Amino acid sequence: MDQTFLMIKPDGVQRGLVGEIVARFEKKGLKLVAAKFESLPEERVMEHYSEHKDKPFFPGLKSYIMSGPCFLMVWEGKNVVSITRQMIGATNPAEALPGTIRGDFALEIGMNVIHGSDSDETAKREIAIHFKKEEITSYERVDEKYLYE
């Protein structure tokens, strides 16, 4: 099974959206294999967003992502990266379709509720930044035989 990293950002946590967002992924049939609730330390923020550190928007992004707790997750399923990206919606909430998480809950790019890995390679990198191998639990959902051919 494929894995991806998702993070409900401080605005999603503060607005009480964690449960509803997790429920959407569970109802889709994806499997939550790791989760933690924490305020991110600066060194992990720097590593996670390393490709953006020289961009003009980075200081605001860093300040925002460290402004409150986040809910970090690893999800598992076939094609999980592309499925979760579709469910999350466009980065700019003004372009996100209704029914997507950002289309339903976000108004601005800077506070767009959730982060999701954009490729299998990025997912592996981000999972390794935020989770130790022993924090990820492998198990079989009782309904998997009805989810996959």
Rank of each mutant, 00 (worst) to 15 (best):
M1K: 10
D2L: 01
P10C: 03
D11G: 13
R15S: 09
R15T: 03
G16C: 06
L17V: 13
G19T: 05
R24E: 04
E26V: 04
K27P: 10
K27N: 15
K27Y: 01
G29K: 03
G29M: 05
K31W: 06
L32P: 07
L32S: 06
F37C: 04
S39W: 04
E43R: 14
V45F: 13
V45G: 14
M46Y: 08
E51Y: 10
H52F: 10
D54Y: 00
D54K: 03
K55A: 11
F57M: 10
P59E: 06
G60D: 03
L61G: 09
L61Y: 02
K62P: 02
Y64W: 15
M66D: 12
S67N: 04
G68I: 00
G68L: 13
P69Y: 07
F71D: 01
F71H: 09
M73Y: 10
W75A: 11
E76W: 03
G77K: 05
K78G: 11
V81S: 01
S82K: 14
I83K: 14
T84K: 00
R85Y: 12
M87C: 10
M87W: 05
G89Q: 13
A90Q: 05
P93R: 02
A94V: 13
E95D: 14
E95G: 04
I101C: 02
I101Y: 02
I101W: 01
R102H: 14
D104H: 05
F105R: 07
A106Y: 02
L107I: 08
L107N: 14
I109A: 08
G110I: 08
M111L: 09
V113P: 09
I114W: 09
G116F: 03
E121H: 06
E121G: 07
A123C: 06
A123S: 12
I129A: 09
H130E: 03
H130W: 15
K132Q: 13
K132N: 11
E134W: 06
E134Y: 08
I136S: 07
T137A: 07
S138D: 07
S138C: 00
Y139Q: 01
E140L: 11
E140C: 11
E144T: 01
E144P: 00
Y146P: 08
